[in-house]
């Protein structure tokens, strides 16, 4: 079966890739916090944040087009939420829509809030794409664990990462088996088969989960998950964090 990756570019070599995952989590999480705490009127700050993130993307050697594509893939979800904001704010109406007896007014504060949500969401998404694509997923999980994220949550995500593609392969096999046995099925019949496939997939995943649990018990699992870590924060990692923090503080408090 094909080898799929969530973290496609995490195996590149760059200054950013070589940083300790903990340093990257702290730095990029700080970016998100600073972006979120910037007032919506500070347009220039957002431009500077975008510039800083673009520089980080360039340093990381992750193709900018890939980052752009991924970020736009996620934006529709944000857009769905942000779309209704302009109608829910009271204030000076910029324009209004008359739908039958209902009158929907779009306000200036509403539009500003929508811009605020969109730009902050976009910058945060770029931060997360950068984090995931400069850190091996396993190291990322271990980084979260070292930052005292509950082990159980880390374990759940690590199982998801391990079995997502196994389930995908399983689905692909069933699709091939279906296609091999019905050449002309379409419309309603296809939907019905798909529903059956989803059901079978659920049962198989459930059974696999049971076997995995047994396999864990066989190797002495009693509840707590024990794992080993290879990373250690170096002086360069501390410098990296400090550098990102200084830039963020400069952008936020320089009055632009």
């Amino acid at each position: 079966m094909k080898h799929a990756f969530l973290d496609e570019y995490s195996r590149l070599d760059s200054i950013l890739h070589r940083r300790d995952p903990v340093a990257k989590i702290i730095a990029l999480f700080a970016c998100i916090v600073f972006v979120v705490l910037t007032p919506p009127e500070h347009m220039r700050s957002f431009v500077l944040y975008f510039f800083v993130l673009s520089c980080l993307v360039a340093i990381s050697r992750v193709p900018p087009l890939f980052v752009m594509k991924r970020s736009f893939e996620m934006m529709p979800i944000v857009f769905c939420i942000a779309l209704f904001i302009p109608f829910y704010r009271s204030g000076v109406a910029v324009f209004s829509l008359n739908i039958g007896p209902a009158r929907l007014a779009v306000t200036h504060t509403g539009l500003l809030l929508m811009w605020n949500v969109l730009v902050k969401a976009y910058l945060s998404i770029v931060c997360s794409i950068l984090l995931v694509n400069t850190t091996d997923f396993v190291d990322l999980l271990k980084g979260f664990e070292r930052l005292r994220m509950p082990r159980l949550l880390v374990m759940i995500v690590s199982f998801m990462y391990r079995y997502l593609f196994v389930i995908e392969d399983e689905l692909e096999k069933m699709q091939v088996a279906r296609a091999s046995r019905c050449a002309r099925e379409g419309g309603w019949g296809q939907i019905r088969t798909l529903a059956n496939i989803v059901g079978v997939l659920f049962i198989r995943s459930y059974e696999k989960a049971e076997t995995v649990y047994l396999a864990m018990c066989c190797r002495g699992y009693t509840g707590p998950v024990r794992a080993m870590h290879d990373w250690r924060m170096t002086r360069n990692d501390v410098y990296f964090c400090a550098f990102v923090f200084i830039i963020l503080i400069l952008i936020r408090f320089s009055g632009v």
Binding site: F137, S158, R162, K208, T211, A215, M216, C218
Partner: peptide, 14 residues
Amino acid sequence: GLVFQDPDAQLFMP
């Protein structure tokens, strides 16, 4: 030491 038939069940860590 018990090894299961299905290696995808035996190998569950990342």
